[in-house]
Design a binder for these strands. Structure first.
Lengths: 297, 297
DNA sequence: TAGATCAATAGATTTTTCCTATCAAACTTG
DNA sequence: CAAGTTTGATAGGAAAAATCTATTGATCTA
């Protein structure tokens, strides 16, 4: 029955019988039959029937909710038993917001020394996508903002506070300042992340609050693009301190803390709320707790 | 796979392949094969093999833990869908400590007016048994003491405080008192519950603390036996107020509150910790919450 | 030592699963 | 608007599995 529940999850995710079947490694008729079987076992329609996929029925949505739990638990069972036999091994899938990508290594590196047989998949995703992937059990953990937008049914462990710096050429108007205000930053044409990124929304919010009307000269969904531009000295950007530290600056570039107000959003690890959780995730959480006391940077 | 997990649960409960198979409605070879299949799916031995059942391996115990969750969730799924279709129906299995049996009606009666299609099974069990049955998903809820012995992984809703009364003949030495102390009660030969009952342990504890050495003249595992004896006027007992209220007293019998110390153990509803829970249990919990504000009696 | 108990195994049968091929309906597009 | 495409359902058959009865071998008990 559990595999039928996986069919339902795939169908809800792909919104297409054929693709869902592919994702599950079965043929379309097999998946159709599986769903039908689930429906007859529960005695209700789960999928709105039409010539093509329309959506799940309300009963289907509730079933989906339980399916995620049951499938998640059954995977956790398998993983825990495997860990008891062979020690921690397997693949940990983590999705991360772009501004936090540079910090993942602080988590994965000590993890790996403790558990050398664990492999990692790190994906760059928006905060919205991270929560969706987490819900669908497509990732094991996410790193995202904790206190800005609602998280849903997850456990969160704070990792650090994100602080913002203006990155400009030394010989530009603000190049020699030791501190700038958001109002001042609002006057500068900036390179920013795309609007689907929460970081962009945070920064725009600050700039607007300071009376600006952000019109970014360049936007991208990856930090490396922003950074490679500001590095030329011909562009400016607002970039989290952690990212600046990782990339490093040339002599011609200044990184100036932005104050008034001195904002700091918490970035943290989010994992599915499950008690107990899988061993891979449990180890990640305890790694995160080891890291989080250093909440200054 | 879920049915195989049920096999494991039955085996752990019955400690016998044949009986476990019976309980699952399959033959012994089927259950044996199911367990074996689970073992090969997980890649570990789950059962200590010998000429007869010895026990589960450590991996088997962990698997059993997950099995309870997964099976519980899958039953909850079925029940929730059924409730969406037909309204609340089915059977609610509740196990209750003897001293609380008289109060169950306060919970079931309003429940039934709200949900007439729900049927009830009420079992008299010890507090220990209640927790075991709850863990094994053999009952849906229990009513037991909340604050005396550890409960395990359950949610608890307090229902009322149990207060104790000395029941004696009006013409006996203490018959006309309005209050007695535990020290005084310790001097009287009593009818009490059997030692496997937590109520007996509670009362013995109080009597010992007051310097007594309880030697009950009569013991039973059901309250009705105690009560029918004290009702003759020839015996004495310590009985919770709720029970006395339910049975009612004759004119020749006194019910005297026991003070110094004025003890009151909390009795409450316990249900498996599951979020969300099944609709039948959710309705029971909200009924219990409605009842619990009246925590005086 | 004989009998009883218990779980594993063998063999047979039924049931289920899952594939390929095809169909019918509903969109898309030229 | 007609032809082609997409999409999910259906049919039929082969393979896999589940599960039963009967039996065995090992261990415990009297």
């Amino acid at each position: 029955m559990i595999d039928k529940l996986e069919y339902l999850m795939a169908l809800a995710r792909e919104e297409h019988f054929g693709r869902a079947a592919d994702a599950c490694g079965v043929t379309q008729p097999t998946l159709s039959a599986g769903i039908k079987q689930l429906e007859s076992a529960l005695g209700v329609m789960l999928v709105q029937r039409g010539s093509r996929f329309i959506g799940l029925t309300p009963e289907g949505e509730r079933t989906l909710d339980w399916a995620r739990r049951i499938v998640g638990d059954s995977r956790a069972l398998r993983q825990e038993i495997k860990a008891l036999k062979h020690g921690l091994s397997g693949r940990l899938r983590i999705a991360v917001i772009p501004t936090a990508l540079a910090t993942v290594a602080e988590l994965t590196t000590p993890y790996r020394t403790r558990h050398p047989n664990v492999q990692f998949t790190i994906l760059s995703k928006t905060s919205i996508e991270i929560l969706e992937l987490l819900e669908n059990l497509e990732i094991d953990a996410g790193i995202t903002y904790l206190d800005n937008e609602p998280l849903g049914r997850v456990s969160a462990i704070p990792l650090y506070h994100e602080r913002y710096q203006l990155i400009v050429a030394k010989d530009s108007p603000y190049g020699n300042r030791t501190k700038v205000t958001w109002a001042e930053v609002a006057q500068i044409p900036l390179c920013l992340l795309t609007p689907d990124m929460q970081n962009r929304r945070i920064i725009e919010q600050q700039l607007r609050a300071a009376g600006g009307d952000p019109q970014p000269t360049l936007e991208s969904n990856v930090m490396i693009v922003l950074f490679s531009h500001v590095r030329t000295g011909k562009w400016a950007s607002v970039i989290p301190q952690k990212v600046v530290e990782t990339f490093g600056l040339t002599d011609e570039i200044s990184a100036i803390p932005i104050g008034e107000p001195d904002i700091a959003y918490t970035v943290g690890l989010v994992v599915p709320e499950r008690e107990p959780t899988t061993p891979l995730i449990a180890a990640l959480v305890s790694e995160a707790r080891r890291m989080s006391p250093r909440l200054d940077s």
